[in-house]
């Protein structure tokens, strides 16, 4: 009955609705999430249906949003927060990293922080400054936080349920440029895949191992699938590992893939230096050293502030840059 095709953002909306319905202790908090339904309309209709006690328009203060959510969590609530844009999470950075992330450890396990922080991230929408950034590395670097990012409608819905149910704080990163990307969602059957498991796509014919493993998450999964499709047309077999989770990372799945293919390329929008790609590359080197045919390569943003919109196409990894790196890897 329940399989529908819907845009990723509608799937998040449906997921939030389910979370609000299932647990009376959940509540949504954020700027403009109420009457407006969020600047992207992700929370559309929820204020009307659940009221202002459950869907809360907060004062314009990110530190306040996260800090008070910590207090609400201490009191037994399960807050689901929205940070309006990636570039505006920093006023809350202190509360997230020094308080939220560490509370469980500091209290010797006596306290739990079941707080979900939703945040649209990444570029590609032609926006002004601070609306296109990929700050996941800062958070993945912080012990105590779980960091995940869905790439399609089904994951958007189900990973949100898992994130909300988690008794640890979860940063749930929404690939905003894919908000309008349609995908199938079955709301009746929870997939067996866990929140922190990677998923492998093998968009080519036959059972032979892939020529190369692309590793991505969030918005870059589609870019990598597009690259794989283009490569398949030229007879090259690229598999795509959708990490889905950035902290922790499912290195077992990554390892199995790379041991078979011998080549790996990590793709993300975030600047390459000091980011997730480096961590993945190091782990692959440790785990798959004798299987590697080429060094693990990375494609991502540059070591520069996210540029004005007219240059973002050049800044962001696209199919061409992915395939160029594939060529470099294959040349070893």
């Amino acid at each position: 009955m329940a399989t529908e095709t819907m845009p990723l953002m509608k799937a998040i909306n449906a997921g939030l609705r389910k979370a609000l319905e299932e647990d009376p202790k959940t509540l949504l908090m954020g700027e403009d999430v109420g009457r407006l339904g969020g600047v992207f309309r992700v929370t559309d209709g929820l204020y009307k249906d659940f009221g202002e006690e459950r869907v809360v328009d907060t004062p314009l203060a990110e530190s306040g949003i996260v800090g008070t959510a910590i207090g609400l969590a201490l009191r037994g609530y399960r807050p689901i927060l929205e940070i309006q844009f990636d570039g505006f999470v920093y006023p809350a950075f202190d509360q997230i990293t020094t308080q939220l992330a560490k509370m469980h450890a500091r209290a010797l396990g006596k306290l739990r922080m079941p707080v979900t922080i939703r945040m649209p991230y990444g570029g590609g929408i032609g926006s002004v400054e601070h609306h296109s950034e990929s700050p996941e590395a800062y958070f993945a670097h912080t012990a105590g936080l779980r960091v995940v990012s869905p790439s399609d409608s089904s994951d958007a819905y189900w990973m949100l349920q898992q994130a909300v149910r988690s008794d640890d704080p979860v940063l749930y990163l929404e690939p905003k440029r894919r908000y309008w990307q349609k995908g199938a969602l079955d709301t009746a059957a929870e997939p067996s895949i866990g929140l922190h498991q990677a998923r492998v796509h093998r968009p080519f014919e036959g059972d032979a191992p892939a020529d190369l493993t692309l590793i991505a998450y969030g918005p870059m999964v589609k870019t990598c699938l597009d690259a794989a499709a283009a490569a398949a047309a030229e007879g090259r077999r690229l598999e795509v590992v959708d990490l889905r989770s950035i902290s922790p990372i499912d290195f077992d799945t990554v390892q199995a893939c790379v041991e078979a293919s011998g080549r790996a390329l990590v793709v993300h929008e975030a600047p390459v230096f000091g980011a997730i790609g480096g961590e993945v590359a190091a782990r692959i080197t440790e785990r798959c050293f004798y299987s590697l045919e080429a060094p693990v390569l990375r494609v991502g943003g540059y070591h520069a502030p996210y540029p004005p919109a007219k240059a973002e196409e050049e800044y962001l990894p696209g199919v061409d840059r992915v395939l160029e790196a594939v060529d470099r890897s294959m040349a070893y």
Binding site: P307, A311, E314
Partner: peptide, 13 residues
């Protein structure tokens, strides 16, 4: 005119 992308991205970091 659109500025040259590489200068927009890399200059002045």
């Amino acid at each position: 005119p659109n500025p040259e992308p590489s200068s927009l991205i890399f200059d002045n970091v």
